[in-house]
């Protein structure tokens, strides 16, 4: 009886997950028929003209997440090295608890702070580039950086603490300094875990919707010539998530191809975050072994 119930509920849950993937594949079929590969490589999205190219949104999603990662990774690693390697155990736990609590701050709250503070700061700070407003890809990236910082810190800290203290003691016994021990023992041995922390944080950044939605500007069809230029990042843009969060989702249902294009976006997102998460967990796991 217990066994049957366990299996039953598990199958319900697994069924729901299967249905989830199935729905996205199946519902997006029309747009694949309509656009083919052009759906991914196309640079123009005009739904009235039935033109659905998602490249600018893929660009927006990736660039915003990368900006976040580049900003948050050094800071997060540094903080994790300090908590794991320098702080006494009790203080470390306290700092970790604090940081983990803050990892749970809802994204709409981050979004609110982004709208009311960060937007103006970015606008003023980069005034000489003459951005049209404070709603830019860079704003979204900076906001995401703050949001994924706790994830990076706490997972990296775990990875570093996973390195056996006997190794550290042996290195100190040879006369290596604290810093040398960190750099030659702790970091190299934790590198898989640190990589996993980055990947999982990247997954979170790619999929974040609400905070990005509020500050990215939601400007369709923005694909600059030079993707790695500060000026380009100071334009408004669109990410997959900000597109999905907008009102177009409500309009699209009913039109097969248009709806397929929207669901296709979700499928792309699912594939991107799924890959990154899977890599991240696989990566981290092997470091424990």
């Amino acid at each position: 009886m217990t066994r049957a119930l366990s299996w039953f509920f598990s199958f319900v849950a697994l069924g729901a997950v299967t249905l989830l993937v199935g729905v996205f594949v199946w519902q997006s079929l029309p747009v694949w028929h309509h656009e083919g590969w052009h759906y991914i490589t196309g640079t123009k999205w005009f739904f009235r003209q039935k033109e659905f190219g998602t490249l600018p949104m893929i660009y927006g999603t990736v660039i915003v997440a990368l900006i976040a990662l580049v900003l948050a990774a050094p800071l997060g690693f540094g903080a994790a090295i300090f908590t794991a390697e320098y702080l006494p155990r009790r203080v470390r736990l306290a700092v970790k608890v604090l940081i983990e609590l803050l990892a749970g701050v809802p994204s709409v709250v981050y979004g609110l702070l982004g709208i009311l503070l960060l937007r103006d700061w970015i606008y003023n700070l980069f005034e000489k580039f003459e951005p049209l407003s404070g709603d830019t890809l860079l704003t979204a990236g900076v906001l995401l950086a703050v949001m994924i910082l706790p994830t990076i810190v706490t997972l990296s800290d775990d990875a570093l603490r996973g390195v056996s203290s006997a190794q550290r003691r042996a290195a100190r016994g040879l006369g290596l300094t604290h810093a040398e021990t960190v750099l030659s023992i702790a970091l190299p041995q934790a590198k898989r875990g640190l990589g996993a922390a980055l990947l999982l944080a990247l997954g979170r950044a790619l999929g974040e919707t609400i905070a990005v939605f509020l500050v990215v500007g939601r400007q369709d069809n923005n694909l600059p010539e030079h993707v790695f230029s500060l000026r380009a990042w100071l334009d408004a843009g669109q990410t997959i998530t900000s597109k999905l969060g907008g009102s177009e989702t409500n309009i699209a249902y009913g039109d097969h191809v248009h709806w397929g294009a929207m669901v296709g976006l979700a499928l792309l997102l699912l594939i991107m975050t799924g890959t990154v998460t899977l890599l991240g967990t696989g990566f981290g796991k092997r470091s424990d072994a």
Binding site: A166, A170, G173, L174, G175, L176
Partner: peptide, 13 residues
């Protein structure tokens, strides 16, 4: 650190 360099240690494990 210089001290530990001169006085080394071998552990049980």
């Amino acid at each position: 650190n210089a001290l530990r360099e001169k006085v080394g240690m071998l552990f049980q494990q």
